[in-house]
Write a protein that binds this DNA or RNA. Sequence first.
DNA 1: CAGGATAGTACGAAAATCGTAATATTCAAG
DNA 2: CTTGAATATTACGATTTTCGTACTATCCTG
Lengths: 173, 173
Amino acid sequence: MQPGCSPGMRLFPRGAVLAPEEPTCFATAMTEPTQEQVEQLTRAFARFTRRFKVADAAAAADNALNALDAETLVFVGDNPGCGIGDVARYLKVAMTTMSSAIDRLVKKELIERRRPEDDRRSVALKATAKGRRAIQDHVAGYRQACRAMLRSLDPGEQRELIRLSEKIADSET
Amino acid sequence: MQPGCSPGMRLFPRGAVLAPEEPTCFATAMTEPTQEQVEQLTRAFARFTRRFKVADAAAAADNALNALDAETLVFVGDNPGCGIGDVARYLKVAMTTMSSAIDRLVKKELIERRRPEDDRRSVALKATAKGRRAIQDHVAGYRQACRAMLRSLDPGEQRELIRLSEKIADSET
DNA sequence: CAGGATAGTACGAAAATCGTAATATTCAAG
DNA sequence: CTTGAATATTACGATTTTCGTACTATCCTG
């Protein structure tokens, strides 16, 4: 996702929801994990998720942004020039809900609306300087959690965790 | 956290919030990760989190449980006999908010209240059979996401990811 | 230009969260 | 035993958030 997405080009087309498919048993090149392995990872990740939430709560206490507004702000920061529909589709909320969220963020001077000349139906969203600072604060919570994770590993394991995380994140499906 | 927590013993005492401490530079046995490593992991985990959210949304569409109610149900399922205050402290919401959430879940017959004889101020919560089924469905979404993660790795990497995840989850701090 | 599609907003209803106050119960002195 | 503080929860009302429907404005296509 490059910054400065051109308006008119849709970031998240309507049908692009990644549907979780059932574990059908067709043979692939990769080895299917065992049920026990899946359970182990599920349990471990539940604790990760909880730790992330703590970071979220701490960040929210600072600038009084609710979860949707914070996620919206981060998305707009990553995708300057995007429209309200783009954010709504990405975060899977109703268009009107996103419109309200944008209202709140504009009122707090964290993002700004602009009418592009080439398509005057849409609005182009952009984080303000104040908004970018707020994003930094918000992301800092996540970064803190990630740092804590890495701290409990020794150097070789740290590198390995990063490598595996990127491999998973970059994999299709 | 053992199942069947005895009432009167508090699961989450008031002061027990794990405060995220600043990255002060005191020397430890473990190697402090570099800023770049932290950033890499943060980026990768942002995508993990998003994938988990998709699973959440899919599960929510089925039985029409909002995020708080779902988390509440899972917690009660893991901690039968717990009280409303326990859940409220764990999920960091106001007592009255949790009371409302419990109301909704009781109305849907997913959990049940009971007045323990030894402390008749409190209520003991427990998931019903229907509730346990709903938990299974909810957890299945998470499991599905974990399975997808493991699928993009080869067998050795799968084992290593599980090992590292457990090491981090089991580490103090 | 007409008709339809697209992007967003206005408005009102429904739902959720939360703070304050009230109720019921337990506990600890005196 | 009684009084008063502490604890666990609920009742109630205010505020905020989400969302569906209807509406406006603009673009596109023939």
